[in-house]
């Protein structure tokens, strides 16, 4: 089978309101183009023979490969005329059908969530270009791309080179299903608006699958009471109200006070019901209005995407340490 690597780059990652309300840095198109360029060069170096790249209104992918002489076939996927998370979701679904061996995702937590909505068990090379990134790590795109190329071309058993991630499944009472990768929160708001959550004062309830202390954002809140790594089974359920107070970095350079009234650890596949009114925030982005009387069943499972470990993948290329 032709060794195929998919590339999904979110053009709007790193440009939201947190550049105004916190000290988050902007991520320009030129920065993203550079990252894509380095990733695809690395992927071909790692053995990719075919690259599937999401197109977008910014033509980031096309501009990234401009003037590159790549020893690989390059195919672009169409995109809608406006920015939408559906773009990443549809691309991921198409990649699955095309038998892509590894997907390089350039974005933040929200972008990775969209990808997983399209292909739940995708083999992901998660590269951070967003704002509060917990799921993707800060890695150099060149070597991330090469690791993806190695995985796609050598086709090792995925569990040998990747760790399966947790997923927060959200089942709405109207039958709709949603997912988050890091945290799911109920926020005291009526609109999704500018999407970001940048104050702890309006939080009502949250479930975190990843609650690591070295993070910024909602995930960090849960880490103060029940640290839970991405590799650990289960999650944490937190309710806010009168109780213990913490100051947490809710966005880059921005601290906010939160008051936790109760918390408990969630076993794997244990469900908790969250009821409206409010807005559900998925991985730090307000995305769904939950009116009064409506509820959602929230479950942390461990059957999500496979996150490629660069060290393990590159050991196939370079050999084990001597």
């Amino acid at each position: 089978m032709t060794a195929t690597v998919g590339v999904i780059a979110n053009p709007i990652a790193g440009k939201d309101i947190r550049r105004l309300v916190s000290f988050a840095s902007p991520v320009s198109d030129m920065a993203k183009i550079g990252i894509i360029r380095r990733a695809v060069v690395g992927a071909v170096e790692g053995g990719a023979q075919r690259l599937l790249i999401t197109d977008d209104r910014r033509a980031l992918g096309m501009r990234a490969i401009d003037n590159l002489s790549l020893d690989a076939e390059v195919v672009f996927l169409d995109a809608p005329p406006y920015d939408s998370g559906m773009n990443s979701q549809n691309a991921a679904a198409a990649f699955q059908e095309e038998g892509v061996g590894a997907v390089i995702v350039l974005g933040g937590d929200g972008t990775h969530r969209d990808v997983v909505k399209g292909w739940r068990n995708a083999p992901l090379m998660a590269v951070s270009t967003g704002t509060n990134n917990v799921f993707p790590r800060q890695v150099e795109a060149t070597i991330a791309g090469q690791a993806a190329g190695v995985v796609a071309s050598r086709e090792p058993p995925i569990h040998e080179v990747a760790d399966q991630a947790k997923v927060i499944d959200v089942e709405l009472d109207d039958g709709e299903a949603e997912q988050a990768l890091v945290d799911l929160a109920l926020v005291d708001e009526s609109f999704t608006g500018s999407r970001a959550v940048w104050t702890g004062q309006r939080l009502r309830e949250m479930v975190a699958a990843i609650a690591e202390r070295a993070t910024v954002g909602l995930s960090c809140i849960a880490s103060r009471v029940a640290p839970t790594t991405r590799h650990q089974a289960g999650g944490v359920h937190v309710t806010f109200g009168d109780g213990e107070r913490f100051r947490i970095p809710i966005a880059p350079g921005l601290y906010s006070e939160v008051e936790i009234s109760s918390w408990r650890r969630l076993h794997l596949n244990e469900s908790v019901e969250i009821s409206g009114p409010g807005v559900l925030s998925f991985d730090g982005e307000r995305d769904l209005v939950l009116p009064r009387g409506r509820s959602a069943l929230v479950t942390v499972s461990h059957d999500g995407p496979w996150v490629i470990d660069i060290e393990k993948a590159m050991s196939l290329e370079c050999g084990e340490a001597r």
Partner: peptide, 13 residues
């Protein structure tokens, strides 16, 4: 100067 993108079809945003 800081700059942000907003959804211009969403008045609340």
């Amino acid at each position: 100067m800081p700059g942000v993108i907003v959804d211009g079809m969403d008045v609340v945003a």
